[in-house]
Design a protein around this nucleic acid. Sequence first.
RNA 1: GUCCCCAUCGUCUAGAGGCCUAGGACACCAGCCUUUCACGUUGGUGACGCGGGUUCGAAUCCCGCUGGGGACGCCA
Length: 460
Amino acid sequence: MTVVTRFAPSPTGYLHIGGARTALFNWLFAKHHGGKYLLRIEDTDRARSTPEAVDAILDGLGWLGLDWDGETVFQFARAPHHAAVARGLLETGHAYRCFATPEELEAMRADQKAKGQPMRYDGRWRDRPASDWPDRPYVVRLKAPTEGQTVVHDLVQGDVTVDNAQMDDMVLLRADGTPTYMLSVVVDDHDMGVTHVIRGDDHLTNAFRQTQLYRAFGWEPPQFGHIPLIHGPDGAKLSKRHGALGVDAYRDMGYLPEALRNYLLRLGWSHGDEEIISTEQAIAWFDVDTIGRSPSRMDFAKLANVNGHYLRAADDQRLVAMVVERLGPVDEAGQARLLAGMAGLKQRAKTVVELAESAAFYVKPRPLVLDTKATAVMAGPNRRLLQPIVACLHAVTDWQAASLEAAIRALAEAEGVKLGDAAQPLRAAVTGSTVSPPVFEVLAVLGRDEALGRLADALG
RNA sequence: GUCCCCAUCGUCUAGAGGCCUAGGACACCAGCCUUUCACGUUGGUGACGCGGGUUCGAAUCCCGCUGGGGACGCCA
């Protein structure tokens, strides 16, 4: 049997980090087994679904590189079919009409809560004859078994059992005739041939209800795999403050999609002691039996570290493009400098944001504005070395990092100072900062004219 | 309240009865490297929630407790 997985987000907001991981796991699982990974937009909640959210989700998945097979399915378009299927259940006696009003049910729940009883629909219309039916709208409920147990053989959690007495008769069709989520998921998953439903832990109890529905239809339920949720750094539910951001926010914060994929993969899944795992390797290794069962927390420090790995491995030209995007218009000469300096730049950054900040000096116009620490260096005793440094540099004919370094080393020795004493004021003058890639590399990337020009500016 | 799930360093995790004086990674601390900052590297601090069983032997199995989380909608 060919594996078919799906990711089924509801377009009521952006694609958040938990959803991204769910998508990733489904994608990896399908790839690993040579199956298909489908995308279905669950837009049946007309009041809350928006086209902007649909775009945000599609963009997010695209950025993450989680391409799906076939056409995107929009659930709402299939509503008439869902309704028809549910009415079929009415015919077979697996469902019934419930005329209870929302107000009535609300009162029922309030009463149950007050008495400390479980809050469940009490089945008041379950066995009423047609002669009792009033002339008003009704919902269609599943006639769920009241005895015995329902078992979900969960791929991640193992066998999970619940007494049928614990579950009430769920609504399949609303009073306006539209299908509910429970109905739509089951019908769509069945029609789409989904074999494995990998989703968040919060759906575990839904799996019981859905299993009952599958039985009512006479269909074989898919394999379920409920993965633990991701919590915020404080252990509480993910909130906007700390992680429940759209993946676009992660892009803005300067994370690379491959880094986010790797980080998310390690949240709840492992392969021995492996940490940096390429997507190819992940496809080869990934399976549900190695998914953990306990919830995990979002750790930005670790994400940053992983991102650093991928940043260092990333193609220089690609990084230049990302940096230019953040720095604004950069002329050709500037882009050439960024490219030449990228190797030294990228190993010092954890995010593209940091990368852009540290790269800015390469393209800033003269005269450079020195930061606080650089200004302090220039005001210090080693400033006196600047004059001889400039003279020394002027004499260098072969403007290469190695030659430049040799010249300054010789100068430092002649002056009786450490190399660092000469390097820092030089760095401050050409970068405007006390922190940068190796200063001789910077000099080489800048080129003779620009470098000497900046030094002239500093000498004022 | 009812039901369900979970429980190893601060965090992510390895661990499928003896290989565990519990391993790795991030973070943190100290050293090395070094023209700054990083990278790299060496070492260090640091965990099996508690209590009962089962067993010759338990982080690993069972039970209880505690603590987290989730679900109880004519939302998805």
